[in-house]
Design a protein around this nucleic acid. Structure first.
Length: 188
DNA sequence: GGGCCGATTAGG
DNA sequence: CTAATCGGCCCG
């Protein structure tokens, strides 16, 4: 049962990214708590795929808010985003790190390592740990079989920083992470 | 078709 | 620090 509503994703992506910290997210038996996110805006943000890719702009216009935008980076890493649209701005929320919660042995198997802090502490690590791949591009985690997405009742101790690993518009403070959390990709 | 780039990661 | 590895985009 998904407690995250459609309207949760019908807001500004920056607000949405902030609110997703603490939410429970999973696929199949593997589940974690979202501890790090980044927002990308469909317009005016040169780091967003929509800036250069017509396909990304088409994706935004032709899918419902909450849809999974999954893409291959560096030819080998799958990265997972939620589509955010219908609010002040359209855009995406990139899931960058999870605190492993359930299915840890399976995560360890998929990742090929056993250190719990190294299972989901990066955008490509967590997709590997959860078994997310290109086949999930365009899926709807709000209604799709196997997905889990529960909203957290409160978000306390959320820190803000610049986004990681981008060259353009890197000054925007659009990265959010749980304060003091050891499972983030890069410490605050 | 060819060249370049990238929201990363693991390993030396 | 760099190799790995490939879809999208810009040429031409």
């Amino acid at each position: 049962m998904n407690l995250c509503s459609r309207e949760f994703f019908q807001r500004d992506p920056v607000i949405c990214a902030r609110e997703m910290i603490g939410c429970t997210f999973g696929l199949g038996a593997t589940i974690g708590i979202i501890v790090e996110t980044e927002a990308y805006a469909a317009e005016g943000d040169r780091a967003c795929h929509t800036w250069k890719r017509a396909g990304a702009r088409e994706f935004v216009s032709s899918h419902a808010p909450g849809t999974a935008y999954v893409y291959l980076n560096y030819g080998m890493h799958w990265l997972f985003n939620f589509l955010v649209k219908g609010g002040k701005r359209d855009g995406f929320v990139l899931i960058r790190a999870l605190e492993p919660l359930r299915g840890i042995p399976l995560m360890e198997s998929r990742r090929g390592r056993e250190s719990i802090a190294d299972l989901c502490s990066g955008p490509a690590k967590l997709t590997q740990a959860l078994g997310i791949e290109g086949t999930h591009h365009g899926c709807d985690p709000l209604t799709g079989k196997g997905w889990l997405l529960n909203k957290a009742p409160v978000n306390q101790g959320v820190l803000v920083s610049k986004r990681i690993g981008i060259a353009l518009d890197s000054e925007y403070p659009w990265r959010f992470l749980s304060k003091g959390c050891p499972f983030v990709s890069v410490p605050a």
